[in-house]
Write a protein that binds this DNA or RNA. Structure first.
Lengths: 108, 108
DNA sequence: TTAATATGCAACTTTATAGTTGCTAAACTA
DNA sequence: TAGTTTAGCAACTATAAAGTTGCATATTAA
């Protein structure tokens, strides 16, 4: 349906999901769905949906243990965003110069 | 309504908008709405809406000249994304070690 | 075994988003 | 001036996304 980078961007485009992800990154251990949803105003189901989105994007891993599901962050997936950024980084400072470089490489 | 970083992430979360942005970045000069929309299957109005979203996110500048509106990319805005990434970068390679560092700093 | 806890699933509402078409107006061109 | 080009605005449709509630089920605790 959607390519990975699009899923990834969409996942982090939502403020609540960024908050969930952040909470998982700085958590000392994996957190259960309930533990996570307790940190938010919205319903557990709402949080669950966001976690699913993060999981689909590869940003969160889930490990089932008994009746609980422990979530942990996978910040490594953000390297994909970083890769995407890399190309544009060359245009940040001197646009024309970098564009020249880019066109040079392209025509070689 | 929405904070800047959210607008930015949402803007680049759409594949068509990433394509438009990319076309503008590598363009030798500013492109008019028609010139851009000719590069896409969809209607001019559809493209116009995407350009507006990119403009609101700060990724595109528009300069009106006569009846035409020339668009150019502002890749610099992507530095905001880069800033956001920076925090998580420390967790990419050795999660536990970096988490330790983070917690150390936090408690200091 | 009974009660409590953790969670998923399904249905539903609301609001955004992507995209379309038709029309209008300003700005060029012949 | 008459026709053409460039583009915005408004209304509309269709689909996706965010969030809710109610219920069912598996697991754990008393």
């Amino acid at each position: 349906m959607q390519d990975n980078i699009t899923k990834l961007f969409k996942a982090i485009a939502d403020p609540t999901r960024r908050d969930i992800f952040h909470a998982l990154v700085i958590a000392a251990s994996a957190l259960s769905i309930t533990q996570i949803s307790n940190q938010f105003e919205m319903s557990r189901q709402g949080v669950t949906k966001h976690i699913k989105t993060l999981e689909d994007a590869g940003l969160v891993y889930i490990k089932t243990q008994g009746r609980e599901r422990f979530c942990s962050a996978n910040p490594k997936e953000l390297q994909e965003v970083n890769k995407w950024l890399k190309f544009y980084e060359q245009f940040w400072d001197d646009k024309l110069g970098s564009l020249g470089d880019y066109l040079d490489k392209k025509s070689t």
